[in-house]
């Protein structure tokens, strides 16, 4: 366990969180990436909260771990294969019954291209 940042990368992270705050623009950008519409009030609220949370979790940089392999999963996984046996599937009607909009036996989606329908 190291008390100080030990690489350039960690140092820059450490410094960034000592000096920089998450701005309303940063929140708006993140919300856009995550496909979340946000109100003006939410921009203010989340900017403050995300800043506090990120400053806290940036504490992971205090650990010297350059030569440590990452753990993606608690149980080491290799490819899982199984025989290609036909099993039961969901009936399309049952699946489409749960959709917000369905038409002609398919999911109906809003316009996906940049011109009006």
């Amino acid at each position: 366990m190291a008390g100080r940042p030990s690489t350039l990368e960690e140092l820059s992270l450490h410094d960034r969180h000592c000096m920089t705050a998450i701005s309303r623009d940063d929140v708006a950008h993140l919300a856009h990436l995550a496909r979340l519409a946000v109100t003006e009030q939410e921009l203010d609220l989340f900017a403050g909260q995300l800043d506090v949370i990120l400053a806290s979790v940036a504490h992971v940089a205090d650990v010297a771990a350059d030569d440590i392999p990452p753990t993606t999963h608690a149980v080491p996984l290799t490819n899982i294969t199984r025989p290609d046996v036909i099993g039961p599937s969901l009936h399309p009607q049952d699946v489409l019954a749960a959709a917000p909009a369905a038409e002609g036996g398919r999911f109906r989606v809003p316009r996906i291209l940049n011109e009006p329908a």
Binding site: S12, A34, I53, A65
Partner: peptide, 30 residues
């Protein structure tokens, strides 16, 4: 839920991935 989605989006974005998510996975090993 919105906060966590945005934190996760931030931690996984290029430029921050190694410093946040990657580093957290190393801590997980430790």
């Amino acid at each position: 839920v919105k906060r966590r989605i945005m934190i996760g989006t931030y931690a996984l974005s290029s430029g921050y991935y190694e410093a946040y998510y990657g580093q957290a996975q190393k801590v997980r090993t430790l």
